[in-house]
């Protein structure tokens, strides 16, 4: 029997397989496909203070080994989440994190405060990296100053786990990671999507209504791995790795690079059962290599 438990700051997960925000709805969308209690954690859809309609259609472009999205944080707001969604998901036997985003620091503070009292939510993922909103989002995550400021203010009001989700659209990601760690982040997740663009040559128009969007899928995996490795080497808090994970081997690569847990994103769209396959694959790998705990391979890259 291999031990799959991992510790993320204040929270223990039954295994390192999580699902990424914006790709897994509220978990309910996947209930017909998998037993949610088997996965380590779910990060639910990006939640903002007020309801957001998101960006205009078209919001998605398929690209080689990936996709661009420009959803723009469509959600019904934190009130709706607390009153209408939380009651329907609180009994899922997995760690549920709420991804929190905002246009202003006050938005982040009020939203986090409202989530503080939800017993079955052990933490929030502070999204300072959404590339698809006009105000806030990624703007907070691309400078040490603003990233520090958001984390510092939210830390004052939110008592449980704060996982900070970083943007890859920066010159030095380790620098941002260190800055948010210094302000009290319990863990750091990365990468959010990479800013990209698609063009319809025949019509001479952009594919997305927003012109640019966020790239995800296997196309971004090498960049994500590199950044996870850099951040894991720089900080002491646990790192949650994501970016193009399609199978167990991909996930193991992130663990070896230093991630204590991983999130599966785009792959959920193609195979809604992929998280279970990744979990089983990690277990097989550990047995095959005679490791008794998944912790034995975290950061075990030999360089």
């Amino acid at each position: 029997m291999v031990d799959l438990k991992v510790k993320l700051g204040q929270v223990e997960l039954k295994n390192p397989v999580m699902t990424a925000s914006g790709t897994f709805g509220y978990g309910t969308e996947y209930q017909d496909f998998i037993d949610l209690s088997r996965i380590g954690g779910i990060v639910v859809k990006g939640t903002t203070l007020r309801s957001r309609q998101g960006n205009a259609y078209p919001r998605m472009a398929e690209t080689p080994l990936g996709m661009l999205n420009a959803v723009g944080l469509q959600n019904k707001g934190v009130d709706y989440f607390v009153n209408n969604i939380y009651p329907t998901i609180k009994d899922f036997e997995t760690a549920i994190f709420v991804n929190v985003s905002g246009s202003t620091i006050d938005d982040y503070i009020i939203t986090a405060e409202m989530l503080n009292d939800l017993d079955r939510i052990p933490g929030i993922e502070l999204n300072i990296s959404c590339p698809n909103v006009k105000e806030g989002g990624m703007a907070f995550g691309t400078s040490c100053l603003s990233a520090s400021q958001v984390v510092r203010e939210v830390r004052k009001v939110y008592k449980k786990e704060i996982m900070v989700k970083l943007s890859p659209n920066v010159t030095d990601i380790a620098e941002i990671a260190l800055a948010v760690e210094a302000e009290g982040a319990d863990s750091i997740s990365l990468i959010n999507t990479i800013l990209g663009m698609a063009i319809n040559a025949e019509k001479r128009i952009p594919v997305l209504s927003t012109i640019t969007g966020g790239l995800s899928g296997p196309a971004v995996k090498p960049v994500a791995l590199r950044m996870v490795w850099q951040v894991a080497n720089a900080v002491k808090v646990p790192v949650i790795g994501m970016g193009g994970i399609m199978n167990a081997t991909d996930a193991i690569e992130f663990l070896l690079a230093g991630a204590s847990a991983i999130q599966i994103g785009t792959a959920n769209f193609i195979d809604p059962t992929v998280s279970i396959k990744v979990l089983e694959g990690i277990e097989d790998y550990l047995k095959r290599h005679n490791f008794s705990s998944v912790n034995d391979i975290i950061g075990a890259l030999e360089v």
């Binding site: 914006g22 790709t23 897994f24 709805g25 969308e29 996947y30 859809k45 998101g54 259609y57 078209p58 919001r59 998605m60 472009a61 398929e62 996709m67 999205n69 959803v71 469509q74 785009t266 959920n268 769209f269 809604p272």
Partner: peptide
């Protein structure tokens, strides 16, 4: 509409 998932998770196919 173009869609990624087909079951309400990605929110890409909105009208």
């Amino acid at each position: 509409n173009t869609m990624a998932c087909g079951f309400g998770a990605c929110l890409c196919c909105v009208t």
